Amino acid sequence: MTTAPVLYLFGSAAPPVFDVAKVIEDAQTRGWDVCLGLTPTAARWLAEQLPDLERLTGHPVRSEYKMPGEPDVWPKADVIAVAPATFNTVNAWALGLTNDFVVGVVAEGIGKRIPIVAMPCVNAAYVQHARFERSVAELRDMGVRVLYGEGGFVPNQPGQGKPKEYPWHLVLDAAQEISRT
């Protein structure tokens, strides 16, 4: 049983996800017990790192729903952080399309009133799609702290991303701020 507050860190398939081990270490330094969840594509991208990430967190990395009747392998979340959140993840979540584990947990997390912070990672072409701004607004209306725009993630032009400059510290700072523990 854990005594540290539990942070569910959920990542989508955007280049900053390759730095998730450093983010986990930073979160652990801040006192979090981290459980890592990934979208199926992000899990495929990090497939070779998954055993190391499981050792680092002390928990299985999850990217799929458990079978009915199976026990949950993670402690209950005190806070959920969704970063990087892709165009697909943000829109599916706002629309309640829970085809994958990450989106299903965060959609349910809203109803359970678990504090949630999200930071997109999308390029400037994606944000021109009308659905994206509506999805961000809807998530905010549901109580999700979305770090997008000033004080959060600012999109780059397509092909000009700077994954090493993704402001991970903002996500962890916000998780600490919204934590009930």
Rank of each mutant, 00 (worst) to 15 (best):
T89C: 11
Q128S: 13
P71A: 11
T98S: 15
A130F: 12
G58A: 05
I24D: 13
A130C: 04
L53H: 09
A27Y: 07
V79G: 04
L50F: 03
K164R: 13
W74H: 12
R131C: 14
G96N: 09
D173K: 01
I110Y: 08
A4K: 08
S12M: 05
E25C: 11
K162A: 10
A77H: 00
P60M: 07
E64G: 07
A92F: 12
V102K: 06
E150A: 15
V82Q: 10
V90R: 02
A77F: 02
V82M: 10
G149A: 02
M119A: 07
T181W: 08
A124I: 07
A83S: 14
L46H: 07
N88D: 12
W45T: 14
A42M: 11
V90D: 07
A21T: 11
V117C: 12
T57A: 09
W32E: 01
V23G: 02
S135M: 03
K112E: 13
L46A: 11
V171W: 00
P167Q: 10
V117H: 06
I178S: 04
F132P: 14
A77S: 04
K162V: 12
F10S: 10
L38M: 14
R62M: 12
V20K: 00
V122Y: 05
C35S: 10
T2R: 03
V136W: 04
A130K: 15
D78I: 03
